[in-house]
Simulated assay, not measured.
Amino acid sequence: MKMDDKVWFAEQFELHRPRLRAVAYRMLGTLTDADDALQEAWIRTTRSDAGAIESIDGWLVTLVGRVCIDMLRTRRSRREQFTGSWLPEPVVSTDETVDPEQASLLADSVGLALLVVLESLEPAERLAFVLHDMFGVPFDEIAPIVDRTPVAARQLASRARRRLRGTATVPDADLRTQRRVVDAFLAASRAGDFEALLALLDPDVVFRVDTGSRTWLAPALLTGAADVAAHAATHGPRFATLCQPALVNGAAGIIARTRSGVVAVVGMTVISDRIAEIDLVLDAAKLSSLTIR
């Protein structure tokens, strides 16, 4: 590679880094993996010819997409050994604002609930949906990445949309409404008030727990308002004393702190004034890499 090409690639990569990191976060669900994907993508630019690139923006996005799908396929084979729930790495702020870097990561309502559903897709479906529906990449550019025709790539994205349809992934737009509901849930948990908790939960609420490599006596997955309310009423009086409000992936949520630092992040999906999903991240590896603003 000529020195001029290397300088040009470096300038373009830095210019597009926020967008590329946002692509990788949606594809991989953790910022650690997203940064690894960008590092690998940068290495691949050193083997490329700048003169053959018509649109650097699209070229870099598809390059990162290729890296991500390779990582997803490798991770999927390893994940077969995983027990319990797996949750994405949260983006957390204790302020009621999202800084520009977080905003680029969280555009299009990329909450924990959406990332959980994306994780259920096949790697090729996830890539087709993320690149086309979230970043506007044409199917004729997606097709070579997934070894399909453009028509087949379009079908992958359509299949992903059908999987996403009807799932509780988009919270109420009004952050104040979300915060009111989450604060009420926290107060009811502290009081161990089963009836108050029941009133705040959607009848089909889903409660997921990601402990990483740690063992956990409680179930990794609970469904239904009665079971979730009973769990919160039992464990809430002790756990909720450690909690404070936070923004979790741009939505109202909770973090729990001890003197040693953050020990839990709770993502909430509030829909129609009820909590539809609760995602409790206890994985020490994900929590240790948090940068909380």
Rank of each mutant, 00 (worst) to 15 (best):
D172R: 03
H16G: 01
A107N: 13
V117S: 12
R257N: 12
D227Y: 07
T169A: 06
V206S: 00
G236F: 00
W8L: 14
A199N: 04
G84A: 09
L197R: 01
G58F: 10
V137S: 05
A37R: 05
R66G: 15
S77K: 14
W216M: 09
A256D: 06
D147K: 13
A22W: 07
A37G: 10
V7H: 13
F194L: 13
I275T: 08
R78V: 04
D140N: 15
D49M: 08
G253L: 01
D193M: 02
P18N: 06
A187L: 12
L63E: 05
R165T: 05
V98P: 05
A276I: 00
A229W: 02
F135R: 08
D133K: 07
R163M: 11
L28N: 10
T234Q: 11
A103F: 09
A218E: 11
A252D: 04
A50Q: 12
L60E: 02
G111M: 01
V64N: 01
D95K: 10
R44D: 11
A226Q: 15
P88Q: 09
Q12W: 09
G111S: 11
R75L: 04
D5A: 15
L197D: 01
L115T: 02
A128W: 02
D108G: 02
V281A: 06
A199M: 03
S260M: 12
D4H: 12
T32P: 00
Q102A: 10
A218R: 11
A128E: 06
L247Y: 03
L201P: 02
L186N: 07
D57E: 15
V91N: 02
D36I: 04
T211F: 00
A251Y: 00
T241K: 12
S85F: 02
M134H: 11
T97M: 08
D99N: 15
R73D: 13
G261I: 12
T83E: 15
R293E: 12
D172H: 08
R159Q: 08
L282D: 06
T45P: 03
D33N: 10
L118T: 02
T169S: 08
F135W: 15
F207R: 05
M134P: 00
M1S: 13
G253N: 07
S158I: 11
A199L: 04
K6W: 10
D33S: 14
D204P: 03
V23S: 02
R79C: 01
A22R: 03
M1I: 06
P100S: 13
I292A: 09
